[in-house]
Amino acid sequence: MSPAELFSLPFMQRALIAALFTGLAAPAIGTYLVQRRLALMGDGIGHVAVTGVAIGLLTGWSPTWTAVLVAAAGAIAIEVIRERGHTNGDVALALLFYGGLAGGVLLTGIGGQSASRLQEYLFGSLLTIGISDVIVTMVLATVVVVVALGLAPQLFAVSHDREFARVAGLDVRVYNLLVAVLAAVTVTVAMRTVGLLLVSALMVVPVATAQQVSRSFRATLVGAMVLGLVASVGGLALAAVASYRVNVAPGPSIVLLALAMFAVTWPVGVWLRHRSRRVAPFADEPLGHEVSDDHDHREHDHGPDCGHLAVPHDDHVDYVHDGHRHAKHGAHYDEH
């Protein structure tokens, strides 16, 4: 079977559609989680959602919907614990995470389901996505993206500076809970493609990649969505092509592709940050008047085209060369 034939198979097309929507939605909400330094929250919600899936498998209800409900309840619990600001909040979160995972595995066993059935949800699965799953994925992912982009000004303000947002009259708690519930929905949406244990990577890694090169929130958000789309669809295609020879779950290939993009972008980010530090204006330190006399400037006049690094310093420009910072002062140069 050629790759063209493979991608024309209905189950493959369903998987591609699910990956496309997931790839857009996960980084969109992930950006807000990273912004409020909750990069691992998606991971925690994923663990809690395992119990939700197990409840679905045990009772015969749709695992997608039980996972949405349990994950949302878990996300709200995490947010409430966080808001209360308990000193050991992270320990409380850890209890919730491991309780969710252990409960899920236990319930699956009680239900007489094999571990491989649960594994489809933990690491993603190409073959098991039905048409109703695709529709649910499309609808929920669209809701996440529309809210994440439509309410971007409010969500940005609340995540960026909680106190300012409150005094601006925004209901900070409602917006925080909204982000938590959207994150839970995203986790559930992504569990059929990336899987519950790796979904957090698709929420966080594209954001980390995008902010290597971006200076603004909007660029980070949009860039992360594009990168998430590429990683998600590309990783799924890789898994499908590789499945001729070995059994590859799509989750790991999607995450590894996202990480590869980060690895490629990271040196660019290091270089950009290095460059911006070099040309960052010198601090407003008190200026002395020390005439540079250790070497001659008659041969060389500093200027815009002299080739030396020009760095703004207060109301003038310093030229950096050989460890000196020279500022023109009348006929001579000052050491700054």
């Binding site: 912004q35 409020r36 990069a39 960026h160 971006s214 929130f217």
Partner: peptide
Amino acid sequence: AESGVPASVWE
């Protein structure tokens, strides 16, 4: 503490 995602002055 700096925010986890860069934000421009304009934003």
